[in-house]
Amino acid sequence: MTYYYTLVIIKFIIGFTIVITHMNFSGKTQLSQMTPIDFIGNFVLGGIIGGVIYSDTIPLHQYVILLFMGVMFISLLNFLTKKFNFFRSVTIGNTIPIIKNGQFIMENIQEKRNKIDMLNITSRIHAQGVYSFQEIYYAQIEPDGQLTIICDKKNMPSVILIKDGVIRTSELEAIERDEDWLKQQIEKHGINNITDIFLAEFWHGEVSFILQDGKIKRVDEQKLKVVAENS
């Protein structure tokens, strides 16, 4: 019996160590940082640990291999969601605008897969200190389920058009622009390669580019450059 309980403790320590190490390496040590992939993956890892820890039929080395396979699979899915918009939209989701220019976007609200409960939305806007839909200029549901509400159109949130050199076409469509327009903006800012762009942020009708080295290309800089060249 002593051997059995010792083995259980060893399995528990190994499982706990692998999961905590994975969370630290991925930078997902808090619940607010976790994606749906992380939540599901942690359930899977917990199932492996819970299913094996009290069993003496599965050798210790197979238990460790199973845990590493689970960790690698979660890491692969997270990598794909960062690099490919398709995987991100499927696994994490996109923002869902429900009010724009003071008008309800009924196709988004009535889309069955969005599962939007307007009575729940009503309670949530009241909790944010907004007491009528008539006050709202723009509203969207974030991928994590949070609700963003804008009452003054001057305070519209920014939109990320490029992430790590990859164009986010759904966000371009949301601001009613196309890839040709975005490429023109890239050329105007003197950026030679789209892979040099870490983030492209659209705000107040203008685009700012944050490069991979941390430098920022803003519209104001471009205007000053034009003035300097013409003077």
Rank of each mutant, 00 (worst) to 15 (best):
N94C: 06
M1K: 14
G47Y: 01
T29A: 03
L66T: 09
I105Y: 10
N120I: 03
K154C: 01
K225T: 07
V166P: 00
L119I: 10
L211F: 10
K163I: 03
D144E: 09
G51M: 00
V219P: 10
P59D: 12
M118S: 04
S132L: 01
L182D: 02
Q30S: 15
E187S: 08
G47F: 05
C151R: 15
V64R: 02
G27N: 08
I136M: 07
T57I: 07
G41N: 06
N114K: 01
L172K: 02
M72A: 14
L161Q: 04
R218S: 15
I210S: 04
M72I: 15
E201Q: 13
L199Q: 13
Q146R: 15
P59Y: 09
L182W: 01
V44L: 14
G205M: 02
F16I: 05
M106Q: 14
Q103G: 10
Q212L: 07
L80I: 11
G102D: 10
H204C: 05
E176Q: 13
K100A: 13
R88Q: 15
E179P: 00
T195I: 09
F104G: 09
L60N: 08
F73G: 03
Q62I: 14
T2M: 14
Q62W: 15
I53N: 02
Q128E: 14
G102N: 10
V130E: 06
V52I: 14
P143L: 01
Q30G: 03
F68P: 03
L80C: 12
G41A: 07
T95D: 12
E176L: 11
N155V: 01
F198P: 01
S208P: 06
I98A: 06
L211W: 06
L199I: 11
I105H: 06
M156S: 11
V159L: 04
Q212M: 11
I53L: 08
G205H: 06
Q140E: 15
Y3E: 14
L199H: 13
F198T: 04
A174Y: 10
G190Y: 05
L211G: 06
L77M: 14
I191T: 04
Q184N: 14
S170R: 12
A127R: 06
K112Y: 09
V52T: 15
I160G: 06
Q134V: 09
I125C: 05
I167M: 05
H189D: 07
I125E: 05
E107T: 12
E206A: 07
T95S: 14
K100M: 12
P143K: 05
G129H: 03
S208D: 12
M23W: 04
I121M: 13
T21M: 10
V159P: 00
I58M: 10
F198W: 11
V44T: 13
R113W: 07
Y4F: 14
M106P: 02
G46R: 04
T57V: 08
I162R: 02
Y138M: 02
D180N: 13
N94I: 03
G41I: 00
T57P: 04
D117E: 06
G129N: 06
Q62S: 15
R218M: 13
L76R: 07
A127I: 01
V226E: 15
Q103E: 13
K115S: 14
F73A: 15
H22T: 05
G50W: 04
F209D: 01
L7M: 11
T57Q: 13
I92P: 04
I141Q: 02
V207C: 06
A228W: 12
E221Y: 10
L119C: 03
A139S: 12
N155F: 12
